[in-house]
């Protein structure tokens, strides 16, 4: 589904060049739930921003279903973001003036899709994530976990090829985090959604099929879940503890 080949990205401040991504390559298969972990400054968020084309890369390829999205025009890119990618942000990014139901509808509203199909799809996603009872509430009236589940539902509205999530549980307590990760797992199992998530949270990462651990702009290690989640969580904690400067939950 997603192939990243030899990706390089650097920032220039004055005469100093900071290399943030150094030859990053990996692949995410259809239906996979992949997390990226690593200490601050390891390049996780830059990687996500490059994949989303929010920032330009220096070198390399970003192939979404074998199409290099980094070479698309602004207009084409907007269409890809709307229809082929789904985004979940750390601070939810819901529109305060719209209800939960209406927020979920936004990707299709931007697409100006027929409303009957839109309503049906939004209702089914709200039900899937257990937030149908609050569909008429406004963001200010619901909890952080409910907001993030609304954001997950919104990300799935156009049946994207790939969901990109940036620290989706970063602003949540453990109970809410569990509910949100549950939403990603449901999306993966029920809708066969492919998810690529950046996280600091080892607990959340333990729900994934695979975890890429980054360090100093490179994929330092790749861990695949083969057994129980608890087992995988232990494995992750061990790797992170072993990493110099690694952060643990």
């Amino acid at each position: 589904m997603l192939k990243v080949n030899h990706l390089f990205k650097s920032y220039k401040t004055g005469n100093t060049v900071y290399e943030v991504l150094k030859d990053v390559s990996f692949e995410v298969k259809e239906g996979e739930f992949v997390a990226v972990m690593g200490p601050s400054g390891s390049g996780k968020t830059t990687l996500l921003n490059c994949i989303s084309c929010f920032i330009p890369k220096d070198e390399g390829e970003i192939l979404l279903k074998d199409r290099d999205i980094s070479r698309l025009s602004e207009k084409q890119l907007a269409r890809v973001r709307n229809e082929r990618l789904g985004f979940v942000f750390q601070d939810f990014m819901l529109l305060d003036g719209l209800t939960v139901f209406e927020n979920v509808c936004i990707p299709k509203v931007i697409k100006e899709a027929p409303y009957e199909e839109m309503e049906k799809k939004a209702q089914s996603l709200l039900a899937l994530f257990g937030i149908d009872a609050i569909s008429d509430k406004y963001p200010a009236e619901i909890s952080g976990g409910q907001k993030q589940r609304t954001a997950v539902a919104r990300a799935l509205m156009n049946d994207p090829f790939l969901i990109l999530a940036d620290e989706p549980t970063g602003n949540l307590d453990s109970k809410s985090s569990e509910a949100v990760i549950g939403a990603f797992v449901s999306a993966s199992k029920t809708l066969k959604a492919t998810t690529f998530m950046v996280t600091h949270d080892t607990f959340s990462a333990s729900y994934c099929d695979r975890v890429l651990v980054m360090k100093d702009g490179k994929v330092f290690q790749e861990l695949r879940r083969t057994g129980e989640r608890r087992e995988f969580l232990g494995q992750l904690l061990e790797v992170l503890a072993a990493m110099n400067g690694g952060e643990e939950k």
Partner: peptide, 9 residues
């Protein structure tokens, strides 16, 4: 935010 959700210019 809308740009990130696919709204073009």
């Amino acid at each position: 935010d809308l740009e990130k959700l696919g709204a073009d210019a």
